[in-house]
Computed example of a mutant assay.
Amino acid sequence: MKPTTRGTLAAVVAGAAAAVGTAAGPAAATGSVPVPVPLQGASAALGMPMPEAGLEVPLLTSGAPEGPRYVTGRLLPERTIPQVPLRGALPGAHVRAPLPRLVGSGYDHVGADLPASGLRALSPGVTADAPLTGPDPQHFGLPALKQPELGILAPVLQTVADADLGSGPGR
């Protein structure tokens, strides 16, 4: 392939990657999709201010599991059923409600901000080994017996949840 063709192909691939990256936008960065809750119609129908609410729905993406690792002295690989990594976010919510003032006219507000927080998880896995050893030269190449092994790899869940509650003047 000529250098000019390679350069043109690299520019096209870089442009396509940039276009896909901007199309994914902030949803891919946080691992959640914002969903507004439309309450403006109820506000107009009732003639009073309504709460404002928005949700964040998580997007879970699975990663590639680690392949089996062969260890000397074992007939089966170390991870018979590997753990699958998952990334995403916990669901989030943003709520702000008007409160009528006790003295005077107008409204204050109370709000809760529960942002979507990152989530990293690993599914459970299994590790096992057969009740035989590998070929043993001292037993004329025949395998010897041993205790079978079976283990469960525990699932992992890592996240840091955050919340902010507040109130103040104004809507």
Score class of each variant (00 low, 15 high):
61 T>M: 03
29 A>Y: 14
130 A>E: 09
20 V>L: 08
138 Q>T: 15
127 T>I: 00
153 L>T: 15
11 A>R: 10
71 V>W: 13
165 L>W: 15
165 L>E: 10
151 G>Q: 11
168 G>K: 06
78 E>Y: 14
48 M>Y: 04
156 V>Y: 12
72 T>S: 13
11 A>S: 13
135 P>N: 12
78 E>D: 12
12 V>W: 06
2 K>I: 09
61 T>C: 00
162 D>P: 00
132 L>W: 13
24 A>S: 12
108 D>C: 06
67 G>A: 15
70 Y>E: 12
13 V>F: 08
68 P>G: 01
128 A>P: 04
146 K>F: 14
15 G>T: 14
108 D>E: 13
163 A>N: 01
17 A>G: 13
17 A>S: 12
140 F>R: 15
99 L>Y: 12
162 D>I: 00
118 G>D: 08
61 T>G: 07
144 A>E: 13
39 L>F: 10
31 G>L: 02
64 A>T: 15
21 G>R: 06
161 A>G: 14
128 A>R: 13
63 G>E: 07
10 A>I: 11
158 Q>F: 06
157 L>Y: 11
35 V>Y: 06
14 A>M: 07
113 D>M: 02
142 L>C: 01
60 L>I: 11
48 M>G: 03
95 V>R: 00
24 A>I: 14
34 P>V: 07
18 A>G: 08
41 G>K: 04
67 G>H: 11
105 S>K: 14
160 V>Y: 06
5 T>D: 12
140 F>G: 11
147 Q>P: 11
51 P>T: 05
71 V>N: 06
88 G>C: 00
87 R>I: 01
125 G>I: 05
63 G>W: 03
125 G>W: 06
136 D>S: 08
38 P>N: 05
17 A>R: 01
69 R>M: 06
135 P>F: 09
32 S>A: 15
36 P>C: 01
24 A>Y: 04
135 P>I: 07
6 R>N: 09
18 A>P: 01
136 D>K: 04
141 G>M: 10
114 L>V: 14
105 S>I: 04
81 I>D: 05
22 T>Y: 08
20 V>Y: 11
144 A>V: 05
1 M>V: 13
44 A>L: 02
167 S>P: 05
131 P>H: 10
27 A>H: 03
109 H>P: 02
158 Q>Y: 07
120 R>M: 06
7 G>A: 12
136 D>C: 05
151 G>L: 10
16 A>F: 09
109 H>K: 02
139 H>S: 10
17 A>E: 02
13 V>K: 00
73 G>E: 14
90 L>S: 08
104 G>C: 10
146 K>R: 15
95 V>L: 08
62 S>N: 08
117 S>I: 01
19 A>G: 11
79 R>V: 02
10 A>Q: 08
61 T>H: 02
51 P>Y: 05
16 A>Q: 02
58 P>S: 03
72 T>R: 12
59 L>I: 09
165 L>P: 03
131 P>A: 09
23 A>S: 09
18 A>W: 07
71 V>D: 12
95 V>G: 01
160 V>D: 10
147 Q>T: 15
146 K>M: 05
152 I>G: 04
16 A>W: 03
134 G>V: 10
93 A>F: 07
24 A>P: 01
142 L>V: 04
45 A>P: 00
90 L>Y: 11
143 P>L: 04
2 K>P: 15
166 G>L: 05
44 A>P: 00
123 S>M: 13
11 A>D: 03
131 P>F: 08
72 T>Q: 15
